[in-house]
């Protein structure tokens, strides 16, 4: 078990380094020197030199061979490549090109708003879809099952943007049930996140219900549930106790699989409802071509995702000891 956890932790290291390599290629190698881009065509030579220094683009790309030949080892590694790894790993991001604020501070100040939206959305989505999936699985083979599954597929087919636009327009603007947009921290926040949350859940429900339905059906086909039915236990009780308990393992794995969905949801929902979270930060940076912010966001979200996978895998191994023997 301990060996498994250690191994799993060690596996995360090359992945994180790989993410750094990809961001280096994306933001340093492919674009080349972005200073002209940033400063504009009419910028003076000093401004450009200033930007280059600020972003570290005046350094050699991989290795300072001159310093190396002179034996100054530390100076030799003062290159774009190694600085990228060092600074990103230590979360020592540069300042934003547009707001000139330190990126990490900005991320920290925006994280609570994102979390306020994402956490209820996540819990609501999982809970609702498991509940519906239980109903569907219980009614398996009947017309209720067929119709609900069909509705799920229809729900999956409609793009998330349509949910958001229709929801915001009719439920907030026309009917006035929710504020149209905006955000306040503290208890007031719930007033503002209610609609985005609901829309996020609605758009994800189709695929989640369908997935959990297969998981539940697999469990129901297993022998011990059949035995329990045969012993004459009342069906709903069997369903809840046995099936749900054993479906726990596949459900745990879906939790981490949901993270990308949450990011997409947060991105679009924060944009539409003007919630000052990380998603809108990323989109704003995207529109203003603020690449240090994009770089920082790619790294932090990947870090979160990798950590999420790590925790899930370890939980998984704790639930099912056979895993650690592999």
């Amino acid at each position: 078990m301990v060996s498994y956890i250690i191994r799993r932790l060690l596996y995360a290291i090359p992945t994180i380094l790989g993410v750094l390599l990809i961001t280096f290629i994306l933001f340093n190698l492919i674009p080349g020197d972005p200073s002209y881009d940033i400063a504009g065509k009419s910028a003076s030579a000093e401004t450009i030199a200033e930007i280059r220094r600020e972003l570290g683009f005046d350094k050699p790309r991989f290795l300072d061979t001159e310093a190396l030949s002179q034996g100054r080892i530390a100076a030799a590694f003062d290159s774009q490549f190694f600085n990228h790894f060092r600074n990103t790993l230590t979360l020592n991001f540069p300042r934003s090109l547009t707001s000139h604020e330190p990126i990490w501070d900005e991320i920290k100040s925006r994280a609570p708003a994102s979390l306020t939206l994402a956490a209820p959305m996540f819990i609501g989505l999982i809970a609702t879809s498991i509940a519906i999936a239980l109903v569907v699985a219980f009614a398996r083979g009947s017309w209720v099952d067929t119709i609900l599954v069909f509705i799920c597929v229809v729900g999956m087919s409609i793009p998330m943007l349509s949910y958001i636009l229709f929801g915001q327009h009719y439920l907030a603007y026309e009917l006035g049930w929710f504020p149209i947009l905006g955000y306040e921290s503290g208890m007031q926040a719930f007033k503002y996140i209610a609609l985005p949350c609901l829309l996020g859940i609605a758009s994800g429900l189709g695929s989640y219900v369908r997935f959990y339905r297969t998981v539940m059906l697999d469990e129901m086909r297993s022998d011990y549930v059949r035995t329990a039915f045969a012993k004459g236990l009342s069906s709903p009780r069997v369903l809840f106790k046995h099936v749900l308990k054993n479906a726990m393992i596949p459900i745990i794995t879906t939790l981490v699989l949901s993270i990308p969905f949450l990011f997409l949801g947060s991105l679009l929902l924060e944009r539409f409802f003007s919630i000052p979270g990380m998603g809108s930060y990323f989109l704003d940076a995207f529109n203003s071509r603020d690449f240090p912010v994009i770089n920082a966001m790619v790294f932090t979200t990947s870090l979160l995702y990798v950590l999420g996978q790590l925790v899930t895998d370890i939980c998984y191994a704790l639930v099912d000891p056979r895993i650690s023997l592999r």
Binding site: T15, G18, L21, I22, L267, F291, V298, T301, Y305
Partner: peptide, 23 residues
Amino acid sequence: VWLFTTVNSIPYIILILAFAFVL
């Protein structure tokens, strides 16, 4: 395997936008 684990560890929408940004 390392390559696809790495690519897969960047959330899809972020990855797609980062690529779009660069390309």
